[in-house]
C-alpha cells in the first residue's frame, strides 16, 4: 500500500514535469504562429466606387475580409502536435496517479482537498483531450496545461495529506456521484472560461484594438468561440445542477436537512445562479458577446474561489480538506 502511495506521488510529479514541457511547446506554437501571420491591412469599408453595374438601391458590398467565423484554425505549427502528444502522455501519468491513490486507499480518491485537486485537474485535461473529437480546441492547450501545472503543483506541495480511511460522514454512495459530477462540471466550466477569455481577446483583435497577440488571427472568430463556449457551459450547467441536487439528497441523509445555507451550499448556489445568469444573458439583447463572456469567466472564478478560499478559510460542514483535525 505504502508503495502504491509513493508511486502515485512519483506519477503526479512526472505528470507535472511532462505538462510543463507541453505548456512550453503550446506557448511556442502560439508565438510561432504570431510570426507567421502577415499583418493584414485595414480595408476601408466603401470600395464600391467602380461597381457601376450594381443597382442604385443595393447597399455597397462589404469587401471580402477573411471570414472571422471560419471553422478552420490554421496556422498551427508542429510544436502544437508535439505539445498535444505530451499532454496525452502527461494525462496517462496523471490517471495512473489517481488510480494508484484510489487502490492504495481502497476508496474513491477524492475525499480531501489534495485528492479533489488531483482528480479535478485530471478531469480538466481529460475533457480537453476528448473535446478535440468534437472541435479543434488545441489552441487552448497553453491555458489548460498551464492551469493544470499550477493547480497540481499547489495542491501537491501545499495541501498534500496522507491516505486516511473514510470518515463516517463520507461513507455514502453520494460521495462517488456528487463529487465526480462536480469535478466534471468544473472541468467543462474551465474549458468554457478559456474559450470566453480567447473570445474577449479575439473581439478586441477583430476591432484592431489590440496591437500585439497576433496569434489571435489564426484562431476561430469570436462568434464561433462564443458559440463553442456556450455549448460547453450549458453541459457544465446541467452537471452543476445535478451536483446541487445530488448534494442536497446527500445532505438530507447525512446532516438531516437537504438545504441549510452551509457555506459550501451557499457557494454552490452562487455559482449556479451566475451560470443561470450567463444562460439568460446569452438570450438577452445587449448582453450577448462580451458581457455574457465575462459572466462565464466570473462563474468559473467563483468555482476556483469556492475550491480554494471557501475550503480553507471559511467554516462550514464541508470540512473535508483533511488539513485540520475535526472533532466528530
Amino acid at each position: 500500500m505504502e508503495n502504491l502511495v509513493s508511486l502515485s506521488i512519483v506519477a503526479v510529479y512526472s505528470a507535472i514535469g511532462v505538462y510543463t514541457v507541453a505548456f512550453l511547446m503550446f506557448t511556442l506554437d502560439l508565438a510561432k504562429r504570431a510570426g507567421g501571420v502577415v499583418e493584414r491591412t485595414h480595408v476601408p469599408m466603401a470600395v464600391s466606387v467602380g461597381a457601376g453595374a450594381s443597382e442604385q438601391a443595393e447597399p455597397p458590398e462589404r469587401p471580402e475580409l477573411p471570414r472571422p467565423d471560419a471553422e478552420g484554425v490554421g496556422g498551427a505549427t508542429r510544436f502544437q502536435r508535439a505539445a498535444f502528444a505530451l499532454t496525452a502522455l502527461g494525462w496517462a501519468l496523471h490517471l495512473a496517479a489517481v488510480l494508484f491513490r484510489g487502490i492504495a486507499a481502497q476508496r474513491v480518491p477524492w475525499v480531501n482537498l489534495f485528492e479533489f485537486g488531483l482528480v479535478a485537474t485530471a478531469m480538466g485535461v481529460g475533457v480537453f483531450l476528448l473535446a478535440q473529437l468534437w472541435k479543434d480546441l488545441r489552441f487552448l492547450g497553453a491555458y489548460i496545461t498551464g492551469f493544470t501545472v499550477l493547480s497540481l503543483g499547489i495542491v501537491t506541495v501545499n495541501y498534500y495529506v496522507d491516505v486516511v480511511p473514510l470518515a463516517p460522514a463520507l461513507q455514502s454512495v453520494w460521495l462517488v456521484i456528487h463529487v465526480l459530477v462536480a469535478s466534471l462540471a468544473t472541468a467543462l466550466f474551465a474549458l468554457g472560461a478559456g474559450l470566453s477569455v480567447v473570445q474577449l481577446l479575439r473581439v478586441r483583435r477583430e476591432a484592431r484594438a489590440v496591437a500585439g497577440l497576433r496569434f489571435l488571427d489564426t484562431l476561430p472568430g469570436s462568434a464561433t468561440l462564443e458559440s463553442m463556449a456556450y455549448r460547453i457551459n450549458i453541459v457544465g450547467f446541467v452537471l452543476w445542477t445535478f451536483t446541487l441536487i445530488a448534494g442536497a439528497i446527500w445532505a438530507e441523509r447525512s446532516w438531516g436537512r437537504y438545504w441549510g445555507w452551509d457555506t459550501k451550499e451557499v457557494w454552490t448556489f452562487i455559482i449556479w445562479t451566475l451560470f443561470a445568469g450567463y444562460i439568460h444573458a446569452r438570450a438577452t439583447r445587449g448582453w450577448r458577446g462580451d458581457r455574457s463572456a465575462w459572466l462565464a469567466i466570473i462563474g468559473f472564478s467563483a468555482i476556483i474561489f469556492n475550491y480554494t478560499v471557501v475550503n480553507t478559510m471559511f467554516t462550514g460542514l464541508h470540512a473535508y480538506s483533511g488539513l485540520v483535525t475535526n472533532p466528530n
Binding site: 457557494w267 445562479t273 451566475l274 445568469g277 439568460h280 444573458a281
Partner: peptide
Amino acid sequence: LVLLLLLAVAAIPGS
C-alpha cells in the same frame, strides 16, 4: 438577469 445576478451577490455575505 439583473435580479439573478443580484441574488448571487446578495448570497455572498451569508458565507
